[in-house]
Design a protein around this nucleic acid. Sequence first.
DNA 1: GTAATATGCAACCTGGAGGTTGCATAGCAT
DNA 2: ATGCTATGCAACCTCCAGGTTGCATATTAC
Lengths: 114, 114
Amino acid sequence: MSPASRNRIARRQTRAPVFAALGDETRLLLVAKLCRGQPSSISELTEGSKLTRQAITKHLRVLERVGIVHSIRAGRESRFKFNPEPIKDIREYLDLVSAQWDEALSRLKAFVEQ
Amino acid sequence: MSPASRNRIARRQTRAPVFAALGDETRLLLVAKLCRGQPSSISELTEGSKLTRQAITKHLRVLERVGIVHSIRAGRESRFKFNPEPIKDIREYLDLVSAQWDEALSRLKAFVEQ
DNA sequence: GTAATATGCAACCTGGAGGTTGCATAGCAT
DNA sequence: ATGCTATGCAACCTCCAGGTTGCATATTAC
């Protein structure tokens, strides 16, 4: 197995938390806002939400823990910024899963046809 | 906005559960096994795990509820089979997120350089 | 200097996720 | 006919995710 491929499979433990972080509508919304490029403060991200500022803060910390966003304190506000790496990683993982399924289908097809 | 694109964004509510279903190591392992093509029974999928058959069953039902797998009863056993659609859907969603981020970077770059 | 703003921290509540055990039941093997 | 095998169902336990409220504190605005 190639080192890269081994890496992709071995890091399954580190990927589950990333999926889990995306497994919540509120957090998907936050990601959707932040991936547009504009770093935002907690108050800004709370605007328009039905949730408390504290609730939003907790969600942001969850995203931060897995690296999907990171925060920088600027004066009295902390600005959150999107970081594409973790999502890139699980995208590749999902590609691998799909590829494996396609291969399996091909093998089955070849077997039936021969 | 194109209908397809609107659809991708509007269906955010239906995607969070799919991410959540993948947000567990045990379930990622099950997906990894099943995407290889071979439909498997609960007992087969339990082999090698430290968990109970019932625990594995619950995980399989979680995956089934979001459509990542589906089961067919065959005699006394029920065989679980991988279904690629939900994963294909969230793959496209992640592609969209990444694309939006890249666009934002490009705009920023263009702005700085002009 | 003082008031308003943006966060952080902590305590607390509730529901559901993830596991287990025990028991019932339907198919298979012999 | 009978015993092993594969599941289903239900009750129960523990822990943590997701929310809230209240209060303290650091910045910024006037």
